[in-house]
Structures are given as C-alpha cells and as structure tokens.
Design a protein around this nucleic acid. Structure first.
Length: 280
DNA sequence: CTTCTTGTTACTGA
DNA sequence: ATCAGTAACAAGAA
C-alpha cells in the first residue's frame, strides 16, 4: 500500500529515468484506470515530454512540456508504476507509456482503485490545494504542526490519516508512528501536552525518513519503479504484529483493534492512554 | 461461504 | 463547523 515513503521512492527512481524523454505512444487496457476520455488522454501525452516528476502526499505529478499540463498518478492500494527497457505487460496492466528511446512505463493495478489523469493548471491546483502540507515540505516545522493541531478534538489515529491535515501517512506508518511516540492511537488531540506533541512530531519525521532510506515497505504488492521490494518491512514494530510480544517492553502482546475505521495495532502497555498510567 | 484488507470520498447523524 | 461512523469502490487472501 503505497504511502509517502513508497511514492517518494518511485518519484526519485522515475525522475532519474524519464525526465526529458519523449512519449511516442500510449496504450490503454483498463479504461477504468484513466480519468479522462481515452482519446484526450492519449492526445495530451503523445509527442509530449516529461519535464519533471513531483509529488504531494501520495500523489505523483508529472509535468508536461508542450502544454504545461500535468499527468497525475495516484496508486491508491495496489497500483504500481514500473519502468522497463522492455515491455512486461501482465493481466493487471492498465496502461503503457512508450518513450522514444524504447523504454516503457507500466501502470499496473490489481484492484483498480488507482488512476491516471491529465489535468490543466486550474484542476491541478484544485486537487493539490485539497491536500494538507506534505511531510517532506521544508515548511512542515514543529510550529506549523502545533498550529495545525490547535482547536482539534479528534482521535490521534484519524488525524494522522487525514490527508487534508498532513499529506502522506497511511495505515502502516500511522501505527508505527504512534508506537515510536509511545502514544495510544485513540488519544484525543486536545489531550496531548507540549512534550507529547513534540515527541509525535519527531516520530513522524523519523519514521518517514527511515522508511524512505529503506525504500519503503513491501507488505504485499508494493514495488519501486525498478520492480524491487522495499526493505522497511523488517523494521515494522506493530503493523501486522498482533499476537506477538512487544519489541519494547518484551512482555505485552500487540493488540489489534478498530480505530477511526481502520485496523490498528498497538501495545497496551507501552502506548498508554494518559500520562502516568503506565502499568508495570 | 464469509470476512478482512486499504485510500479516498460521500453521506448520515450527533 | 466539527467529528464519528459507515458504505462504496475492487479483487484477492485467509
């Protein structure tokens, strides 16, 4: 499930490979994956050039030279963007983008929730502005984070998953961040004191940074633009670890519960509900 | 067979 | 306005 670290890994891979390349042909196999009319989609891409590969949250943004329009790609749950020198189409391939040098960008998506769409400046801005600040944005400082949390009352887990607040965190990293911060995912935002907020901020930065360093988490489906698995999987402390002993206190078993509508894994002992409530 | 999985949006009701 | 809860989407795994 691509979250920010996975999408950033793909972005960096593709930036190296396809910037400046000319698109000569587009083939579509799953029209559900394309949010334009197929003719428009092909017309906008054919004989155009990709001038940059950007990202906001989990959304990939390819800048197109001639028209200054953008190709947006969201991988949702099972989407893949794989760059190859040769065609490696399979039954889940939704579209292929052929470059003049013979290389090919594959858009694969088992569950077909992901999408590709060419948008003009106005629509691009509308979609971008609907997302909160990107976790890697220089402006995502502790002060900014504290400000965002002001006058909020919801659950910690829901806040981390809310892309309109901060963009990029999904279910895996939300649980890992809460575990590192030693905060119960069901904590109310307005119950966090300054020290806890600071710990939370640092945990977000540290988990995301470490996950990018290890090229993301492959749990089931995710691969980078070269088709390689992410190596952060072996650093996971709580995600899908229910039933196993907590790696921190080494005695309590990791629990699984539904929070904010998502399955959530946490240690009841280490991630206390309130300060001073740590049972020993 | 049923249930669960996840990112996002839409909708309901408090 | 804000928040919680749920359905919907799709396809596969358990």
């Amino acid at each position: 499930m691509p979250e920010l670290p996975e999408v950033e890994t793909i972005r960096k891979d593709l930036e190296k490979e396809i910037v400046g390349k000319k698109i000569i042909r587009v083939e579509i196999f799953q029209k559900k994956s394309i949010k334009n009319s197929l003719n428009k989609f092909k017309k906008e891409l054919k004989n155009n050039f990709i001038t940059s590969v950007q990202r906001k949250g989990k959304l990939l943004i390819f800048e197109l030279k001639k028209t200054k329009k953008h190709l947006l790609v969201h991988l949702r749950m099972t989407g893949q963007l794989i760059y190859n020198k040769k065609e490696k189409k399979n039954e889940h391939t939704g579209a292929l983008i052929y470059f003049k040098d013979g290389s090919i960008l594959h858009f694969n998506d088992i569950r077909r929730f992901g999408y590709m769409k060419v948008v003009d400046q106005k629509e691009k801005n509308k979609i971008i502005d609907n997302l909160g600040i990107d976790l890697l944005d220089k402006k995502f400082t502790f002060g900014k984070f504290k400000n965002l949390l002001k006058n909020r009352n919801g659950m910690l887990k829901a806040m981390l998953l809310n892309q309109k607040m901060i963009a990029g965190i999904g279910n895996i990293y939300a649980d890992e961040i809460c575990f590192l911060a030693k905060l119960n995912p069901s904590r109310k935002i307005d119950s966090l004191d300054d020290k806890e907020t600071k710990t939370l901020y640092n945990s977000i930065r540290n988990i995301i940074r470490l996950a990018i360093k290890h090229r993301g988490t492959t749990f089931s489906n995710y691969v980078d633009a070269m088709g390689q698995k992410g190596k952060f999987s072996k650093f996971l402390k709580v995600y899908k670890k229910e039933g196993q002993k907590c790696s921190c206190c080494k005695k309590t078993v990791i629990e699984k519960a539904k929070m904010a509508g998502r399955s959530t894994r946490y240690c009841k002992n280490c991630q206390r509900q309130k300060r001073g409530n740590l049972s020993k």
